[in-house]
Design a protein around this nucleic acid. Structure first.
Length: 488
RNA sequence: CGGGGAGUGGCGCAGUUCGGUAGCGCAUUCGCUUUGGGAGCGAAGGGUCGCAGGUUCAAAUCCUGUCUCCCCGACCA
């Protein structure tokens, strides 16, 4: 059973790679730092997309699409923004190849007048359009989202968690007032929190980033932070209040009701295929992938068991109305009637791929009006009655979804502590998990803590857990405790 | 980008020390028997050994360069 997967307590990194490989989520590509997302992985992404897209539409957003290439000059318009991304941009310099004895090489005559940057994010190209779309307060707000790929030239990559090219969505909004933009930023953070908790069954802490962790060009970066099984934190989504930085850089003004010309207020927010990495590291076990029912490509798999052709026909005939009943309840079911694999082999495969529920149907079940029902998350297996099977499974899917969240929540809570001294902090951070501690608010102290303990401030929580005190390092006054962890 | 490890049929590996013309397991194809936790037997197909140079009568093996992947570090979603 799942013998190819490294145990988590042996080597967590290797376990993660093994799960991605064995569950057929993604492959390494021949291109450094890039991945091939396989159908099993992409199906999860499609389910994530569908749920998020609906939440975006329900909050008044529209989808659009902007170019992959950004003129180099655009990127230099917002100083902080450039600085943040300059070191990780792919640059297109030429427009064609020419054949050279059997191979090809870059045609030096095709050098571009202005180089193009492969988007690391789209603020600049989008704001260039917004400039043309906005004249009056009546044109606001603009609330657009795009589903796209972006490229960031990373030194070190890991499947899903950090790849050079990744898929994401990026929302970009423009507003007449600061209040409205802040409200939008907070609303989208709340959308992300809801999605993480209700669909991914992944509990998160919401908060605001410190200056050093903030998005380049933002006034405030809000985030959702989650805790993986190995005690490391993962930033799972960000929502930025951009103030008037981009409006000023691109000179985007509108005439307000009072006749005045004013710069517009902006937000941007995004989540990426990194969420799949978070999903894996939140729920999966030594047997392989565990997927919460709401995101599972197939919620139920039906494995028929038989010896002869007659038995096969009999078993499939018995299974068919069961599948119909499940589908009628909106449950996604896959019938695994492949004849070239034995049931045991199929059990193992669906287990490693994380299908939430397995139904096995054999001659004994047909005879007794039963089914064998197995839960992926707990690995429990029971013989249950054919009667009321759809209701039972519907309930079980909801139970699994809830249990996965509760277990993850309990794990996070158990590994979240609060400390008062730096000595205690240094000791506790070694054990992993989230740690609340007082911090004086200075970048210097933050940097010192990072150098000495490898821990970073994940966020200043929106819900502080206690009152003012003294910075654990400098003893200077601190208004509230902030959240530390070692992070991915 | 620094340190360590690895690239050999689709996958996992042996062979490299000491050069001699490539092998094992799984998978695949065909046949028969099987099917309630990764089936058995028999037969068959499949590799210019990451890539490019070099040394040699002869290179998976030695030398040089280069690309990619994994782990650890610095940087980042």
């Amino acid at each position: 059973m799942a013998k190819k997967i490294t145990k988590r307590d042996q080597d967590y990194s290797q376990w993660y790679i093994d799960v991605v490989k064995e569950a057929k989520l993604a492959d390494h590509s021949p291109v450094r730092g890039c991945m091939v997302v396989r159908p099993n992985g992409f199906a999860i992404w499609e389910n994530m997309k569908a749920a998020l897209d609906k939440m975006f539409k329900d909050t008044g957003h529209e989808n659009a699409y902007f170019p992959l290439f950004i003129p180099k000059s655009f990127l230099s318009k917002e100083a902080q923004h450039v600085e943040g991304f300059a070191k990780e941009c792919a640059v297109v310099t030429h427009s064609r190849l020419k054949s050279v004895d059997g191979g090809v090489e870059v045609d030096p005559d095709s050098k571009l007048d202005e180089e193009l940057i492969v988007r690391p994010t789209s603020e600049t190209i989008i704001w260039d359009s917004y400039k043309n779309w906005i004249q009056s307060y009546r044109d606001l707000p603009i609330k657009i989202n795009q589903w796209a790929n972006v490229v960031r030239w990373e030194m070190r990559t890991r499947l899903f968690l950090r790849t050079m090219e990744f898929l994401w969505q990026e929302g970009h909004t423009a507003h007449a007032t600061k209040e409205e933009a802040v409200e939008e930023t907070e609303q989208m953070l709340e959308v992300y929190r809801t999605f993480a908790e209700e669909y991914m069954a992944m509990p998160v802490i919401t908060g605001v980033k410190t200056e050093s962790e903030r998005f380049a060009g933002a006034v405030d970066t809000y985030c959702i932070e989650s805790l993986m099984q190995d005690g490391k934190a993962l930033q799972a989504g960000t929502s930025h209040f951009l103030g008037q930085n981009f409006a000023k850089a691109f000179d985007v003004k509108f005439q307000d009701q009072d006749g005045e010309h004013k710069h517009v207020w902006a937000t941007s927010w995004g989540v990426s295929t990194r969420l799949i990495g978070g999903l894996i590291m939140t729920h999966s076990d030594d047997q392989g992938l565990v997927i919460p029912p709401k995101l599972a490509p197939n919620q139920v798999v039906v494995v028929p068991i038989y010896r002869s052709d007659e038995q096969r026909a009999e078993v499939l005939e018995y299974a068919e109305p069961v599948i119909k009943e499940l589908e009628a309840k909106g449950i996604s079911v896959k019938l695994d009637d492949r004849d070239n694999y034995k049931p045991g082999w199929k059990f193992a495969e669906h287990e490693v791929q994380g299908t939430p529920i397995r139904l096995a149907v054999g001659p004994r079940d047909v005879e007794n009006s039963n089914l064998e029902l197995a839960r992926r998350d707990t690995l429990e297996k029971n013989i249950v009655s054919r009667e009321g099977i759809a209701e039972r499974i519907d309930e079980m899917l909801q139970t699994i979804q809830k249990d996965l969240f509760n277990n993850a929540k309990k794990r996070m809570d158990d590994r979240t502590r609060s400390v008062d001294s730096y000595e205690e902090f240094k000791k506790e951070i070694e054990k992993g998990g989230f740690i609340y501690a007082h911090w004086d608010g200075s970048e210097k102290t933050e940097q010192q803590i990072k150098e000495e303990t490898k821990a970073t401030i994940r966020c200043i929580p929106l819900k502080p857990d206690n009152n003012s005190g003294e910075c654990m390092v400098t003893g200077k006054p601190s208004k509230r405790k902030v959240l530390f962890a070692r992070a991915y």
